[in-house]
């Protein structure tokens, strides 16, 4: 499963949001999108997910053009994992994950044994089977994020789109969620996620797309393209990039008068 975006442009009320964006994600890559608030990361996701269709350019998943696909067909190609959120009604974790199977349920069918099995496998894969009978409203933000990932797995789509998966999560949960994402990419899922932490990108991502002023400013391996210059272009702050443990790890150190 590959995700291909060619010459994508989108404007809202004559204001350009995305301008001629192209990238290709091969199967099994964990790709991060970096960019300031409001730079168009969500818009890009909405175009890929078919929530916005009045764009120019071409988006294909596995060589299938997604623009005018019906919801159900699109959902079996790409899954969306929102930030861990609250719901209007309380569902059990099991039911929440079971909803992922809707993408492959025909017509008036309700989930049956097969879907139950898929759901249990998804929970198992993320090691959260113990949450099965808990209330979604009563688990922590980190657990919710894992439940939403499990739901995407139950959807059996190979492309996963994640909107700031570590937002609102504590330090430990952020790392746990990122570790699971790495694990899933290694298993063959193609993952595209937005983040505001270059350090997380250094730690886990194969690739990074840097978005600024409607265009992709840089695209490549994190170590090759995340520089203090790039961070200044994206966010307007000065940082030093430090290398640790024989360059196994890199991280950003802010330069606002601390050092």
């Amino acid at each position: 499963m590959t995700l291909n975006v060619e010459h994508l442009s989108f404007s809202y009320n004559d204001r350009a949001i995305l301008d001629d964006i192209s990238f290709h994600l091969p199967q099994g890559t964990l790709t991060a999108i970096l960019g300031a608030n409001g730079v168009g990361k969500s818009t890009l996701f909405k175009c890929v997910l078919g929530l916005l269709t009045d764009y120019d350019g071409k988006i294909t998943i596995n060589d299938i053009e997604t623009k005018n696909l019906p919801a159900q067909q699109l959902a079996s190609l790409a899954a969306y994992i929102p930030q861990s959120h609250d719901t209007a009604f309380n569902f059990s974790v099991f039911d929440m994950v079971l909803m992922g199977t809707t993408a492959r349920l025909k017509g008036f069918r309700v989930p049956s044994e097969e879907q139950t099995k898929i759901t249990l496998q998804a929970l198992e894969k993320l090691n959260i089977t113990f949450l099965k009978n808990r209330d979604y409203k009563r688990i922590s933000g980190g657990e919710r994020q894992l439940v939403l990932i499990a739901r995407a797995l139950a959807q059996k789509a190979n492309v996963l789109i994640m909107d700031e998966p570590t937002a609102n999560l504590d330090y430990g949960n952020s790392l746990r969620v990122l570790k699971q994402m790495r694990f899933l990419a290694d298993q063959g899922y193609t993952i595209l996620f937005s983040t505001h932490s270059p350090d997380h990108v250094f730690l886990y991502a194969d690739r990074v797309l840097a978005l600024s002023k409607q265009k992709i400013r840089a695209d490549g391996k994190p170590k090759e393209i995340i520089t203090s210059d790039l961070i200044r272009t994206l966010y307007g702050v000065d940082v030093a990039i430090e290398s640790l443990h024989n360059d196994k790890i890199r991280c950003c150190i802010p330069q606002n008068g601390i050092l």
Binding site: L51, S76, A79, P82, T87, M99, T102, R104, R151
Partner: peptide, 17 residues
């Protein structure tokens, strides 16, 4: 069953098919 999915909001429902 589809009403369950609708309770999650329009965008999430769409992404779930």
């Amino acid at each position: 069953w589809k009403i369950n999915v609708l309770t999650l909001g329009d965008e999430e429902a769409w992404a779930l098919g």
